[in-house]
Amino acid sequence: MAEQVALSRTQVCGILREELFQGDAFHQSDTHIFIIMGASGDLAKKKIYPTIWWLFRDGLLPENTFIVGYARSRLTVADIRKQSEPFFKATPEEKLKLEDFFARNSYVAGQYDDAASYQRLNSHMNALHLGSQANRLFYLALPPTVYEAVTKNIHESCMSQIGWNRIIVEKPFGRDLQSSDRLSNHISSLFREDQIYRIDHYLGKEMVQNLMVLRFANRIFGPIWNRDNIACVILTFKEPFGTEGRGGYFDEFGIIRDVMQNHLLQMLCLVAMEKPASTNSDDVRDEKVKVLKCISEVQANNVVLGQYVGNPDGEGEATKGYLDDPTVPRGSTTATFAAVVLYVENERWDGVPFILRCGKALNERKAEVRLQFHDVAGDIFHQQCKRNELVIRVQPNEAVYTKMMTKKPGMFFNPEESELDLTYGNRYKNVKLPDAYERLILDVFCGSQMHFVRSDELREAWRIFTPLLHQIELEKPKPIPYIYGSRGPTEADELMKRVGFQYEGTYKWVNP
């Protein structure tokens, strides 16, 4: 592979701008107003304001973009700056750019259920340069409990009458099928589907988006991507930290609602779906819905739930269990780990287990898709061969690698495990991989909904998990304890083995 010439960040961002501006969906010269509902909250200060700053800094926003914060707290732009700027990672050389960014910011205080507050917000936006005809993007960085009041008031008082209007809704989209349907029906009564952007930030990850290209742009994968060759698929999300004093919020939802029903299920769809007619948003989402419709409700015998306990040999936070978090209700049975087996009941995947695993306070930070292939028929190497695996590593250190057998150097035919490896950090030294939120917010500006969740996708996802969630809430089974920093409950490994996964433990990928 030829040595790549190092590029400056300015040059890299210039390439990104060229890609972005050559499309006809990006209205570079139009006025846009980006409204952050819930501007005083954690999500706004840690993710949304920093993301908008990065896009502005790199010249990736339309030229005439204004940012308006809205929340109940009586704040000023200076207050917003004070709480969000520490997350910007701005350099001293960017000081003038930073001043320009905050000059485009404003803030309006108001209630979430008060019509007069929204009329005041609308008047404020109209007073901005060309504000009355601007395109408006409303980001709901809010708890779902206020979605209905907020969307109703936005629709009645704050819509642009000339430009387009788009609304970005953060997960969780309800707690179960019934609450999700209620919320979807409410929002759909106010906005068209092409105006609604239900954001799952995992769909903005580079390697998640790469799944489609790997599958449908490489001839070698087509013939082997089926039940005849693939023994099982494992989708993993692991965090090495616990709730760390923020367990009160987590306890309301648990690990299945927080990660599995959305992030992991979306990745499953991209692995299992048929080739779409095109890369058009609805063509892709149509195929994802077909996959979900082929999955039956989760069966309790295919589920393992766990909850982390303190590690007596650990240090600091590792010595504390979930129930030691003062914000967690006493005696909570909320799971911090889950392993679930699903089956896609169609011709391509009949009988292939899709194993979804996620948890907190585990032994490493990792998100990946792992396809394990069947054993080689007619073994001539005296059971020395391990199964081939194709691994798409989402985070950290984005990579695609194939675990395969090669001859060990020497005189004899002794096979050993090795890999074919594409590590993004080595291959793409001159490429700026956008943060997931950067990519998705740019998608909203461009009107691309491919990486957002459609209402029928959402409904099918909740259909699969709601009976299990209701059973857990009714019966309150005690989750299996696992030690902070471990791989999780051993019962999860036993479940995976029972459905056909072979864990060798003899080879570990190392970032080159």
Rank of each mutant, 00 (worst) to 15 (best):
S180K: 00
I255Y: 02
S106W: 08
V146G: 02
T76V: 10
L190E: 07
D251S: 07
S106A: 11
G23V: 15
R166E: 01
W54V: 09
F26Y: 15
D194Y: 09
I48R: 01
S8L: 04
F241H: 09
D58W: 09
T31L: 08
F34P: 04
S73H: 05
V169S: 00
F138A: 03
A44I: 01
R72V: 02
V68A: 05
Y202R: 00
E206L: 07
G163I: 00
F241V: 05
I187M: 13
P172D: 02
G248T: 02
D228I: 07
G245M: 11
V233M: 07
M37W: 05
S160C: 13
P62N: 07
V146C: 10
E93W: 09
S40T: 12
I52R: 03
G242H: 03
D113I: 06
T65H: 04
P86S: 09
Q178R: 14
I255E: 05
E170G: 04
R57N: 07
A141E: 01
G247V: 07
P92G: 12
M125K: 02
R9P: 07
S123A: 15
F250D: 04
E244S: 14
L61E: 03
P223W: 06
I234Q: 15
V213A: 13
A78M: 12
A78P: 13
K82D: 10
G41T: 03
K89F: 13
G110S: 06
V169H: 03
R74N: 13
R192C: 11
A116R: 13
Y107I: 07
Y139Q: 06
R136I: 08
T10K: 15
F34I: 13
E85C: 08
I162T: 15
Q195P: 01
I167D: 00
F253N: 11
N229L: 04
S180A: 06
I15M: 14
F87A: 08
E94V: 06
F237I: 12
M159Q: 14
Q195R: 05
S188T: 07
G163W: 04
A127W: 11
V146I: 14
I154A: 07
F101D: 00
F101E: 04
C158K: 01
A6T: 15
T151H: 09
K46S: 03
F87R: 06
I15K: 11
Y197V: 00
G204R: 04
L128M: 15
V68D: 00
A134V: 09
L190V: 13
E244T: 11
C158M: 10
I196W: 00
F216D: 04
I220S: 05
I256C: 11
D100Y: 11
E239V: 01
F21L: 14
I33V: 12
E148G: 11
L98Q: 06
W53L: 00
E19K: 09
A78F: 13
M37Y: 10
S180T: 04
R9E: 07
I67K: 04
I33N: 06
L16M: 13
Q83H: 11
A231Y: 05
S29N: 15
L75F: 12
L96M: 12
L61D: 00
W53T: 01
L96E: 08
R72W: 01
K205Y: 06
L60V: 10
A115V: 15
W164D: 08
A103D: 15
N122L: 07
T91Q: 15
F88N: 05
T236N: 07
G14I: 07
Q195A: 10
I230F: 06
A217S: 14
S132N: 14
M125W: 00
D194A: 10
K95F: 10
G163L: 03
Q83A: 14
I67D: 03
E85S: 10
E244A: 14
K97A: 10
R175Q: 11
C232A: 15
R246Y: 02
M207I: 07
F250V: 00
G204V: 00
E193M: 00
N165S: 10
V208M: 14
Y107M: 10
W53Q: 02
E193K: 04
A109W: 12
E63N: 11
G110D: 02
P62R: 06
A217V: 04
Y202K: 04
F21C: 12
N226E: 07
Q209N: 10
L43G: 03
I220E: 02
R198D: 03
I154M: 10
W225A: 01
T145N: 12
A71P: 03
V208Q: 00
L183T: 04
W54G: 09
F101Y: 06
R104Y: 08
T51E: 09
T31R: 11
L128T: 09
M125Y: 02
V233R: 01
T51C: 09
G110P: 03
L235W: 03
S123T: 14
K152E: 14
M207Q: 07
F253G: 02
